[in-house]
Simulated scan of single mutants.
Amino acid sequence: MLKIENLHAEVDGKPILKGLSLEVAAGEVHAIMGPNGAGKSTLSYVLGGRPGYEVTGGSVTFSERDGTSIDLLALDPHERAAAGLFLGFQYPVEIPGVSNVQFLREALNAQRAARGEEPLSGGDFLKLAKEKAGLLRMDMDMLKRQVNVGFSGGEKKRAEMVQMGILAPQFAVLDETDSGLDIDALRVVGEGINTIMRAPDKGVLLITHYQRLLDVVKPDRVSILAAGRIVQTGGPELAQRLEDEGYDAVMAEAAA
């Protein structure tokens, strides 16, 4: 579903990704872990098409909703979203003056228009939004408020998962979704990811520092990203080893 080959990228002339290769199959949740400064957020921004992140080599192939393989890097950010890619931010931004309901309806109908589909009516959209908000235990009154304004860290992450549920992407790149969550919110968000994205025709690249989210989401594979490259890939037990032994011991073994 997502195939990254020998990806190189830099920010302000500084190389961050240095030959990263990774493949995520349809139906798979693939966790990325690694020390600070390894390039995890840079990878997510490059996949999402954030300005300022320059790709200097390599390729990213993405399978659209109809199964067609496309060059993801050749698309603008909004085209990537319409093709079925969703990017969840470590720090969701506030958008004063714009309600969540307004923002989400416009985003969904813009993507539907790009795919040649009819827009959802106001009533149909509110029904969909209520359903997805319920999955994340979020009251509809929260969605009537300005986007993320005055929200706690946990509320921002739950609102972002509601957005993912409404947009129904084929592939989600989630950058440290567990950041700022307490124990209860972590479980709600993790269960939301499972409900929305666990399907044979979908995929998830889940970037995290900690085992605690993986206890809920239960990834199929785990990779360690260090110094801009994938240095080791294994099953869920690899994340538990990192939790128990730390990065130094596990990466020293990988380099041996």
Rank of each mutant, 00 (worst) to 15 (best):
I4Q: 12
L7P: 05
G13I: 09
K14Y: 13
P15K: 03
P15M: 04
K18L: 09
L20I: 04
G34P: 01
N36E: 07
G37P: 10
G37F: 01
T42P: 02
T42G: 04
L43F: 03
L43Y: 00
Y45D: 13
G49V: 05
R50F: 15
V55N: 11
G58T: 10
S59D: 06
S59Q: 08
G67I: 06
G67W: 00
S69I: 05
A74M: 11
A82S: 13
G84E: 05
F86H: 13
V98T: 12
L104E: 03
R105D: 11
N109T: 07
R115K: 10
L120I: 13
K127M: 11
K132P: 00
K132N: 03
A133R: 06
G134H: 01
L135D: 11
L136C: 04
M138D: 01
K144E: 14
V147G: 01
G150V: 05
G153M: 04
K156W: 02
V162Q: 07
V162D: 07
M164G: 07
A168G: 05
Q170D: 13
Q170P: 00
F171W: 01
T177D: 05
T177W: 03
G180L: 08
L181R: 13
L181A: 05
D182G: 00
I183Y: 07
V189L: 03
I193V: 14
M197V: 12
L205G: 15
T208N: 06
L213K: 09
L213I: 15
V216G: 12
P219S: 06
V222S: 09
A226M: 14
A227I: 01
I230P: 01
V231Q: 13
T233K: 04
L238Q: 04
L242E: 05
D244Y: 02
G246H: 07
Y247H: 10
A249L: 11
M251Y: 13
